[in-house]
C-alpha cells in the first residue's frame, strides 16, 4: 500500500471539507473493497476520510413507513437488527448473506452502495425496494442513483449518510454465488408494495444492477413463480466470463427471481 493521509472527522461537514481539500480523496467506511485494492496498488488515494466516527452514521431509524439505515452501519448490524428483521426481513437476510463474517463485521451499507460493484448484493435491495440514497447534499432516488458498473450519481465531494428503505408488503432476495468469489453471479430482489412489484437484478447484468420490467409486469399481475414462466431475460444483456456465459446468467436470473418470489411468499 502506498502512503496516504488518514482523516477521522467527527461531522459530515468536516468530512466533506477533508474530501474536497484532498488531491484525490476517498471515503473510507468498512474498507472491504478499498483497502484490498490499495494493497494491490490498484488504487492510491492521497487521502482517506474515515466517516465511521461521525455521530448518526450508524443505526436503524423506523418512522413507520420506512427504515433509514446509517451509511456506516455494518452488514452484520443490519442482519441482526430487530427492527429490520421485523419490518424488512428480506433486507436483513440479504445483509446476512454478504461475503463472510469478517466482511460483514467491517463492510457497511453506504460503502457497498457507493462502490456499486456489479456483483454486490445491496444495490439490488436499494433498487428493488425503491430506496432513497441520502447524501451530504441531497436525496437521490435509487432509480437515478446507479449509473452502471462502479458508477453512481455521487459527486466527488458527496458522501452517503443514510439509505431510506420504504417498507414493502413482500420482499425477498435470492442469489446464486460465484463458485470462486461467492459474490452474486445473479442476485434478484423482488418487492411488492401496494400492488406494484419491483424486480432488481445484480451480478448478472453487463452494465451493473438493473430492473427487469417484464418480470415486474408479470408479477404485478400475479405474484407467483409461475407468472415468471413466460418472461424473457436477454442473454445479450448479461455478463459473460469464465464463470458462465450470457445464456447461463440469463437462466440464473429467472431461476433466482422465482426463488425470491417463493421466499417472499
Amino acid at each position: 500500500m502506498y502512503d496516504t493521509n488518514y482523516h477521522k472527522p467527527s461531522s459530515v461537514a468536516d468530512a466533506v471539507s477533508a474530501l474536497s481539500g484532498a488531491e484525490d480523496g476517498k471515503v473510507l467506511a468498512g474498507g472491504q473493497t478499498l483497502l484490498p485494492t490499495m494493497k494491490q496498488h490498484l488504487a492510491a488515494p492521497s487521502d482517506l476520510v474515515d466517516i465511521r466516527a461521525i455521530p448518526g452514521m450508524v443505526g436503524v431509524d423506523d418512522d413507520g413507513d420506512a427504515l433509514t439505515i446509517g451509511a456506516a452501519t455494518t452488514h452484520a448490524e443490519v442482519a441482526a437488527d430487530p427492527t429490520v428483521n421485523a419490518k424488512l426481513p428480506g433486507l436483513a437476510k440479504l445483509a446476512g448473506g454478504i461475503g463472510d463474517p469478517a466482511v460483514r463485521h467491517m463492510g457497511t451499507i453506504g460503502g457497498s452502495v457507493a462502490n456499486n460493484d456489479p456483483a454486490a448484493d445491496y444495490p439490488a435491495a436499494v433498487l428493488g425496494l425503491g430506496a432513497t440514497v441520502i447524501t451530504s447534499k441531497r436525496e437521490i432516488a435509487a432509480d437515478d442513483f446507479f449509473e452502471g458498473m462502479f458508477t453512481t450519481a455521487l459527486e466527488d465531494d458527496e458522501i452517503i449518510t443514510a439509505i431510506r428503505f420504504p417498507l414493502a408488503s413482500k420482499a425477498a432476495y435470492a442469489k446464486f454465488p460465484n463458485p470462486a468469489s461467492r459474490y452474486a453471479m445473479a442476485g434478484v430482489f423482488v418487492a411488492e408494495s401496494g400492488g406494484s412489484v419491483r424486480v432488481a437484478v445484480t451480478g448478472a447484468g453487463a452494465d451493473g444492477v438493473f430492473r427487469h420490467e417484464g418480470m415486474e409486469n408479470a408479477l404485478s399481475g400475479q405474484f407467483s413463480e409461475s407468472a415468471l414462466d413466460y418472461t424473457d431475460v436477454d442473454a445479450g444483456d448479461m455478463l459473460s466470463d469464465l464463470h458462465g456465459d450470457g445464456a447461463y446468467r440469463a437462466n440464473l436470473v429467472k431461476v433466482m427471481a422465482k426463488r425470491a418470489v417463493a421466499k417472499a411468499g
Binding site: 460465484n178 463458485p179 470462486a180 468469489s181 459474490y183 469464465l242 464463470h243
Partner: peptide
C-alpha cells in the same frame, strides 16, 4: 468441480486470485 487455471487468448492469466480461481 471447481478448480481450473484459465488464460485468455493472449496468455494473460484470468484466474490470478481467489476471486476467479475456485478453491
Amino acid at each position: 468441480m471447481l478448480e481450473g487455471v484459465v488464460h485468455d487468448e493472449s496468455g494473460q492469466l484470468l484466474t490470478a486470485s481467489y476471486m476467479d480461481y475456485a478453491m
